[in-house]
Amino acid sequence: MTGTLSQPRPMLLALMFFAGLGYLLATPVTTGAAIWMDVAATVGVFILFLLLFVPLQIDRRAPDWLKNLSAFALFVLLAAAFFRWADADWGRLGHLFFNFEVMSRPGVMLRMLSGLWIAVQVFLFSLVLATLLGIFMAVVRSIVNDALLNFFIDAYVDVFRAVPPIVLLLVTYSALPYSGIVLSPFATGVVVLALVEGAYLTEVFRAGIEAINRNQVLSARSIGLSAWQAMRLVVLPQSVRIVLPDYSNRLIGLMKRTAECSVIAIAEILKVAQDLQSQFVNATPLIVGALLYMAVLFPMTRIVSRIERSRPRN
């Protein structure tokens, strides 16, 4: 019994999928007393599907594409059940959230794409600044190692990690006009994000430096290398591999946090999408905005998880 149940049966699974989908799509929702029959039938579709689905997923010999395809089939069935049972005004939702007509109006997609470009610019500029800041702070902390200096660096790290970036953005943006400092919203956003990210990266790089055995520095110094040379030639090249997974994970967070710059009127993706939304009284730009973020972030997360898998042991 268990033997036959645990056999993967892809053909039967496919048959079950089409039967279930047919039922969910073709028959209208029953009302009244017979609704229990309908509920039972829907549940039954999923139980039967899962009985065939699970053995395939846990079978080690089953090819990956078959596993992915069947997982997708399960998703389709769930979606079909949702659409069948949810009591929603589908036409109205479609009009508000998936409105191609709105998106195809002149200049709309162009504005969305320029939002993407600005978001990427905020990301890149603040990334470079934050990386330099983080390396500088971590290296100075390790080499100079002066109590007072360490106190200030730790204070910077703690403060900027303890305030939500969006609050910092708003405070800086509102305070600037009275401070006599003239900064564009774009520059303000870049500087604030870089300061926040720099605080996190200081910690990331510090951990990477401290992970290197102290004897490596002694060994480098015994050849006659200066402290800075030992850091640059011996410690940092080894820290890179240790730091890379955490560093690349922070990149993803930083890209997402560029959305917070919308509150200080930087015309990045979210700001543009919100402007278009109120202009056309339609939420489709928000959906397109989400897709734009995904277009950037999917490849990034893919690369990052590949880097994570190559994380050096020990």
Binding site: N213, N215, Q216, L218, S219, A220, R221, S222, I223, G224, L225, S226, V234, P237, Q238
Partner: peptide
């Protein structure tokens, strides 16, 4: 000190080569 150290070699118990 750097030039002093350059003139005096040092060999450690656990080698301490630079692995990279």
């Amino acid at each position: 000190v750097n030039s002093v150290r350059a003139d005096i070699g040092m060999v450690f118990q656990d080698y301490n080569l630079f692995p990279h």
